[in-house]
Design a protein around this nucleic acid. Sequence first.
DNA 1: GATGAATGAGATTTCATTCAT
DNA 2: AATGAATGAAATCTCATTCAT
Lengths: 200, 200, 200, 200
Amino acid sequence: MLPPGMSDRAAGRRRELLDAAIAVFARKGFHAARVADITAEAGVAHGLLYHYFRSKDEVLETIIRETWQLLQADTERIASSGAPLEEQLRRFAHIHLGSWLVAPDLIRVLVREVGRSPQVGSRVGEMGGVFLGLQRIVEAAHERGEVRADCDPRLAAWVFYGALEEILTGWVLGQLPGGEQEIDRAVATVVGITHAGLAA
Amino acid sequence: MLPPGMSDRAAGRRRELLDAAIAVFARKGFHAARVADITAEAGVAHGLLYHYFRSKDEVLETIIRETWQLLQADTERIASSGAPLEEQLRRFAHIHLGSWLVAPDLIRVLVREVGRSPQVGSRVGEMGGVFLGLQRIVEAAHERGEVRADCDPRLAAWVFYGALEEILTGWVLGQLPGGEQEIDRAVATVVGITHAGLAA
Amino acid sequence: MLPPGMSDRAAGRRRELLDAAIAVFARKGFHAARVADITAEAGVAHGLLYHYFRSKDEVLETIIRETWQLLQADTERIASSGAPLEEQLRRFAHIHLGSWLVAPDLIRVLVREVGRSPQVGSRVGEMGGVFLGLQRIVEAAHERGEVRADCDPRLAAWVFYGALEEILTGWVLGQLPGGEQEIDRAVATVVGITHAGLAA
Amino acid sequence: MLPPGMSDRAAGRRRELLDAAIAVFARKGFHAARVADITAEAGVAHGLLYHYFRSKDEVLETIIRETWQLLQADTERIASSGAPLEEQLRRFAHIHLGSWLVAPDLIRVLVREVGRSPQVGSRVGEMGGVFLGLQRIVEAAHERGEVRADCDPRLAAWVFYGALEEILTGWVLGQLPGGEQEIDRAVATVVGITHAGLAA
DNA sequence: GATGAATGAGATTTCATTCAT
DNA sequence: AATGAATGAAATCTCATTCAT
């Protein structure tokens, strides 16, 4: 995840720059954000960004990749838990939608810059891991007889993920109320619909 | 929709430029696309674009707005049909996912540039119309007793729309197979899950 | 030589920019010269340079290439004249050293930026033509019996050209007096030494 | 030549850095070469270069100056030898062209960066010494009656030097074959032409 | 309507140099 | 002596937009 051989101090600086970038990208959007904004936010000279990243693009790429990697790890942990389908869906939804409270700026960036990802080229890999994890969750439930026979687990995974993503989008765009209680409701609603929709 | 007082010929040119823009935006993305690319695609000098649009931004805005307006009209027609919920959902899904076959470049642009829309400022209006229409579809079914009591029609509308959008995203990113038959399957799956998930 | 399909007006602008570049490169050297210096010298906005040249490098490349092409044409004309060796050498020396009076800035640029040429990559081609022309001049004289048998025409061409080039260098660096009369003396000296040195 | 009070070890490091710089300048050219390339070649941290040199420019200056100083010393030794003109020319040519075998990278740098020298400001001094030495060689021969009366010794020195320099250029650019035997032939040719051209 | 030369603001990126450790 | 993180000046190049023709 980190370039090997990076000192603690260097890793700290790198993290500071990533956090500054998230804040700035969330505020102005990736394109309107200048490198100088990021380094000003981090309180360093703008040349320093280029010691840690090859380009402004690589900064966004890193943010996206690291986030997807974390989500992928969560997904795999949930998939290995052996819990009932509904419980697994709830855990995933809780983590994914819950991140709106924990790191709203990060969510703003991810929602608004999704479109860039395929260009940036790295999304597909990590993203694929998450979708595969969700698919395996549905498949396992399928094998346990928790899911309707006529349901395609792969599409089901996309449907479920898309529902969550759209709600995050609603929050980011201010189209849906996004307080703490709404998050619980949203988790319940998405899981309710999806699970009932899939259930045998 | 068209600036008033525009001749047929002028409207034709305008349309050519919009189509050229859709092709170019689909190929390179909005930011990487240059005005000169669009006019070259349309076979005219680049100054001409400024007779029809105030800026490059306005071109994208127009594309997005016109699309949402059409979708809004479709949604309202469906909502007024009085058909059962499942049938209404199927019609909407059929139109929305079906556009991948009819106008894949347009879908590519919409999926990839969603993030830009709120900045551009026009999304919220027309988009809101579509979501409101979907919400009213669910509410009406609710009143007819077709839907579970504990279900929030607004969130349900977002869940349904998000599921469709994510499948379009999968096709755009090449992560899901997007042939003609897959479209029918996708319609069936999304409608199946959502309707069963909402049903009383 | 010119990109085809360039209007007279465009060709004129291009020439103005080349002349401005020669003046600026002569004054500050290629590296210290900024694109803005060139365009300021030409009295246009700096963006305009990029309508005519792909880069600052291409401007220098063009200057060098066009100059060598002219010299190559001169060389070929002289080589085809059938005049005695001494006369041919005198004509070449007269043209080459004479350019110091005609276009001293151009000579300054060429002498000071020779080193760049091979990097720029185009020198070898045109340059090769000049050296080949000189070589053929010596070879023809050899066949006419005007030249010693033990003399390698190729090396002789390089010796002759190097002598001229070094004198231009002396003028550029201000190490040799470079007035009008000195040019005639220099022609006489170089031709005198080289011809006597080669003569049978 | 060395800053006074420099230890042997320090002098060794300094030498290592100069040699590394010669290799890098030969490979990439002075401008494209970064300080970090030089220190990487020498296997030290880039800050260290600034313990031994004030700037990147000073490194090139040093390389050029030291080389010209050695050549100047050679020239003066030859000039004092009292040998016949032809013999003196041969010795100089042998040393100068011979360096292509001994230190080709150094020659590459000198040939390609001549243009920079006057800017760097140091060339004129040491260079002047070499040219003056060659001029005195011709003048002495002139006084001994070995040389034609109508020959300007100063220009003759430049002609001779330019011939050698151009042959080195041909080798550097790969335009002339530069093996061991070619060097002897080149010495013979240049000396042959120049001496015969000057002889009474 | 149509053209494309001309403009110029503006941003990324590079890299020589410094200096605390 | 040696390191390499940090600085920040500086310059190329892009491209949306304008406007004379």
